[in-house]
Amino acid sequence: MNNGLALFLGVAGVFAFSWGAFILPAHWQLGRLGQYRDPVDETLHPSAAPGLAAQGGEVYADLGCVYCHTQQVRQTTLTRLKEGKRAAFNPDFERKWAGDANQPRPSYARDYIQDRRVFLGQVRLGPDLRNVGTRFPDDQALYKLLFEPQAVTKDSLMPPHAFLFETRPIVGERSAKALAVPAPPGCEVVPTPRAEALAAYLLNLKDTYDYPEERRRNMLPSAAILEGDR
């Protein structure tokens, strides 16, 4: 351990190992994932986000929504007693975070290949947003939430993002985009372009297409865990 060169080579070796053991195989494995062509209607999945939604992703990054919200529906890993029998369940499914309510599924790596930025997130201070597009009917409901979450849910812990909106005097007709929120007389509250992009991004978040291959592969581990838990 006294030879500087040997020490340096060891140091480089440690780094190369951490890279080679972790990043390289993952890159090799995930790099092969491509879009999936539906055998029936020949559509490609997942599809790229439309332009406005892609811009909204930048707004999502710049406002740091990721520090409170995740974007990943987790795999089935829990069991509970139901009618005297142990049954697997996925809390994310029951919270309606998993896309199609009739056919809920966890997130797959393939779901993300078209995302310019991936926001898996680290902590769920707010609900998971991977399928938020299935829960909101239109941008108006999102605007209302972003403008003042406390008006939607009492004591909500989501911070208001009123700065994404503009209060301006009504000139001529009321804007079609104006929010249904209290505004000073003669004024209206309208979303800025950033708010519109963000809403488009959120509405576009929905993984409703199910990949047959992934579904089969992902069902296996949960069954294995069931066995182990008995």
Binding site: G64, P159, P160, F163
Partner: peptide, 17 residues
């Protein structure tokens, strides 16, 4: 959540990072 939320620079998603 209301604390300093009006100021875009100091919104939680920026102050935290």
């Amino acid at each position: 959540p209301a604390f300093l939320s009006n100021c875009e620079w100091f919104t939680f998603g920026r102050v935290y990072p």
